[in-house]
Design a protein around this nucleic acid. Structure first.
Lengths: 212, 212
DNA sequence: CCAGAGTATTTTACCATTTAGTTAAACTGA
DNA sequence: TCAGTTTAACTAAATGGTAAAATACTCTGG
């Protein structure tokens, strides 16, 4: 522990580097990201990155860990406050949406990582975070199933559905924006998830989960 | 037209190049893809790529066009054969699943493109293909809504949900495989979409769409 | 409180490699 | 011969990474 805290003492350079790296990796992907660009945005010399963190791979792993861990924490916390299984599902969906809204680097990082088959994922953290998340969903589903409101459903299916739908909606904003004129009312507006879109997805998911 | 046919005459080099390029871009993304690697896999000198197709961007655009156009065609065709709106929705989902199963480069290409905000998308084709797809979904939904079986639903929401869920499931196969031992029954097996997974998603989506 | 030795951090300047793209020569078939 | 095609060889720029000098900071004994 005490290792992925924000930083103990004079971690200002480290913070600025991580912040810049998160954005650069999200925008350009691992291969597209440039160490020079990270240094430029962090307002730091490139060699400083190597001094504080390490090479490109280590920097990337650090970024992924930070983002995934942070989000999982939030969801776990919020879900506790809801009462019924249906409320818990809705809370879970809204919290994922909220996490993506307030942490816009998360969807692209996630999607790119998935697109590479997780090739750059550092085992250590990710397994833990990921398993924790699925387990969370499973518990809510089990509660709903045993109380008779939910039909039998695979937790992973549900989770993939929720996360991918929200992430893709978020990420397609520029594309939707670009083709707005031509497609008219077919195109949904906005890039905020929290609001009509997340609510609609929430309702659809709950309907899909219900017995009968 | 006659321009995105497989090729008229001695298009063997072109075919091999496109085939290699599709795979390399799918595996490595645009920035990660190397022209030398494409040439190597195509069994062709690098300069031949520039002679037949053009630079990296043109090659990429060609690949995207081929993949998206091809898939949209298939869905449009298959959906015609279904009778009721519910059957059409199921057909639509199964066809997307089938397209992804038989064209495994599609999900990663799609996801990466979405993750970059469509930055590399060539306007010309994509707009057309994309609009066609959404319009298709809209017609099926409208039919179901006016006949009273479906509730009002945004076509784009539905489409994003279906496509992203299937793509993400497909792409998480290596990750799921990797963590199989630890997570036990939480992890769904297999990488084929057509079968239990697509069927389950189909059922869930239809339930979600139903009035009441 | 301070000199200055010692440590941590940052920067400059650089290298080796990779990579997109080009050129001009060689080859092929009609 | 000649247009179409392929190839080897090359270039220029970009890029990940490093070594060593320069700077900032900390801590000690006087």
């Amino acid at each position: 522990m005490g290792e992925h805290d924000i930083k103990d003492k004079h971690g200002e350079a480290r913070l600025k580097i991580m912040d810049a790296a998160r954005n650069v990796f999200a925008e350009m992907g691992f291969a597209g990201a440039r160490m020079d660009e990270v240094a430029r945005r962090a307002g730091v010399n490139k060699a400083t990155i190597y001094y504080h963190i390490g090479d490109k791979k280590e920097l990337y792993a650090e970024v992924i860990h930070q983002v995934i861990g942070n989000t999982t924490d939030r969801i776990e916390e919020n879900i506790r406050r809801a009462a019924t299984p249906e409320e818990k599902i809705m809370t879970y969906i809204l919290t994922v949406a909220e996490a993506m809204d307030s942490n816009p680097q998360m969807p692209p990082l996630m999607m790119r990582e998935i697109a590479t088959g997780g090739g750059n994922l550092p085992d250590a953290f990710v397994l833990e975070d990921f398993a924790r998340m699925i387990d969370l969903v499973k518990k809510v589903l089990d509660e709903g199933i045993s109380s008779g409101v939910f039909a039998e459903t695979a937790p992973l299916s549900l989770h993939l559905m929720v996360v991918s739908t929200l992430a893709v909606y978020k990420m397609t904003f520029p594309i939707r924006e670009r083709y707005k004129d031509m497609a008219g009312d077919l195109i949904l507006p906005g890039d905020k998830l929290v609001g009509p879109f997340a609510a609609q997805i929430g309702r659809m998911v709950i309907k899909a989960l219900r017995r009968i």
